[in-house]
Design a protein around this nucleic acid. Sequence first.
DNA 1: CGAGACCGTGAATCACTAC
DNA 2: GGTAGTGATTCACGGTCTC
Lengths: 387, 387
Amino acid sequence: MSMTKTGRTVKRRAGENDAAEAEPTPVHQDAKPPFDRIVEGDSIRVMASLPPESVDMIFADPPYNLQLQGDLHRPNHSKVDGVEEAWDKFADFASYDRFTADWLKAARRILKPDGTIWVIGSYHNIFRVGATLQDLGFWILNDVVWRKTNPMPNFRGRRFTNAHETMIWCAKDADARYCFNYEAMKSLNDDLQMRSDWLLPICNGGERLKDENGKKAHPTQKPEALLHRVILAATKPGAVVLDPFFGTGTTGVVAKRLGRHFIGIEREHSYVDVARKRLAKVRPVEDESLLATPSKREEPRIPFGWLVERGLLHPGTVLVSPNNQWTAKVRADGTVISADHRGSIHQVGAAVQGAPACNGWQFWCVPMEGKLVPIDFLRQRLRAELS
Amino acid sequence: MSMTKTGRTVKRRAGENDAAEAEPTPVHQDAKPPFDRIVEGDSIRVMASLPPESVDMIFADPPYNLQLQGDLHRPNHSKVDGVEEAWDKFADFASYDRFTADWLKAARRILKPDGTIWVIGSYHNIFRVGATLQDLGFWILNDVVWRKTNPMPNFRGRRFTNAHETMIWCAKDADARYCFNYEAMKSLNDDLQMRSDWLLPICNGGERLKDENGKKAHPTQKPEALLHRVILAATKPGAVVLDPFFGTGTTGVVAKRLGRHFIGIEREHSYVDVARKRLAKVRPVEDESLLATPSKREEPRIPFGWLVERGLLHPGTVLVSPNNQWTAKVRADGTVISADHRGSIHQVGAAVQGAPACNGWQFWCVPMEGKLVPIDFLRQRLRAELS
DNA sequence: CGAGACCGTGAATCACTAC
DNA sequence: GGTAGTGATTCACGGTCTC
């Protein structure tokens, strides 16, 4: 069957031939790969000029094809600074797919047989990227979700806050002997297996590169912590890491710091300029273990609504105050309603008492085995399950 | 160009026609949709038998075992030699894509213009599903990550623990007026916007259905909490929710409990059997008012002039901005006039501040009992009278 | 100097009705 | 169908300013 490991291998060869045929003018052919350098130029052409099977890992942050329609304003009327660069404009899905297949074929040709590729994207493009990766014979190892601690909110209240991006991690074929530093990932995660969802802040503050006017140097600069985990997970020291959409060079910075080689390809001269200066300041670390900052275990906050979702309480259940003086009914959305008030357990608790504030977790009770038990008991039970 | 909202609309019509043409033998044509029932049979055929534009939401958990799907939809393939095997492998992805496109087209035909569809999957199939959804003209609203609190560990230590699944939520086109119960989701999350990453345990314990031998009734039973959030987010009470791969009926159970109608389609008799028994035990929440969260957007519109007509404000009354900086006088026709501007409360509010827009209901105040109260308070009073 | 208020901002496919 | 008008809508941080 085509989903077998053998099947993948056959397909891969086909993909490589295609890429080779499409190769335009060679640039570095027969030359040594341009280690630890930025090559200014078109990704596909530059990759086509590199020796086949010469890089250990590829990290790619291609244009997302965002298709933003009009301006978006915050509630305070300020305008959201969206991605308006020409490099993110594609005529339609077909041309985006063609672009994706072209650069992925070129990437596949230069990837070592046991190398891996990471591609990051959002729902605008990631499904097309993933399907193309599979079509070209790449073997998906994981899809990894980057959960942002501080995403931009949804200002109009019409969707869920878009709080994550997706990375697809692939080996070249199903039976490739790719590199995964299991132990490093485990120790980075308090000695628990690293999961496929990573919680990391977006890049801002001092790390965010800005020009002399305070304008961001690149609209989509990735945080170094993200690349740290990627490179640490999937390469050994001394490996060659290539980034075909180098931007301001985050991949190169982290690779260099971690004792890996990098190759950066970037078309925009202004980005190349920023990346060169940035890289010049980076010094590789002597002792790698110093960088293994364990991730903090998150203690999940438990919204009251989760008790309803999870069936620990049902819509219509009556909550009672400790003295039996007040009652409130549970609603499906996790609010409660008393005779005169509707809102959160805290709001309604405060309102019925005429108090300025109230801890609804302690105030509201449910009868259990003949006694009134605060709903905090249920929260504790749920927290134990969720941790 | 084809990526515009208009483009989407055109594409949608095409998709519907395709589906209509592909329709096989009608089963329930011209009949009322089989509300609150399970239909035993093939998803695509059953959906083709339903009236067009008749369901409000579709939740689908399609099979992603490409090997099993392959032989269902593959065109005739009698012999394969070594070379053709590569084609065969490719044909497998292609046949899964064909299967996906077929059921999604059938789903699209029966979905109301303002309905939405949710599809859940893992990295094995979700990229192909997402690309097909886009190709058919569906407009992605969010990709939502279900983070599992208790995923299966990775035993061989060769990858990250696969700790999540992905749901894609789509409207029928870019300019559809889909349903999103923003306030309900916000309430459910302690009054913070609901994000695109959801933390929920997998289905086990008492909720997990097992046969008399303790064997799981279904390999991938979804937790009811997941469906609770999905259905509460994207439907109103009374809506029709269809699940074309019903399994043991989690979608139906939650829909019924939350006062929505369900239609379940399932091919395997054993699953239908389990689902029927399970559904018979479910009792809907009695009080419908516990199910829906009121939203400001849906409240009846009250023109400012009505306050003047009804005597809650009089011509000549002076409105004041919260900081006492600006004033405007009420006119008999429901416009207001400041030193330099005349127009609606919104227009004058914006003009005096030099802002691009202004919500006059919140901006303008009247003194009441020594304090400045926004005129929105008067609107609420009038609304109460009129309801 | 520290605490707290205030402001700016991030890969964003972000209304709806009435005329 | 196009245009104009109404009016609903934000979380986590980092940096700066104020007291």
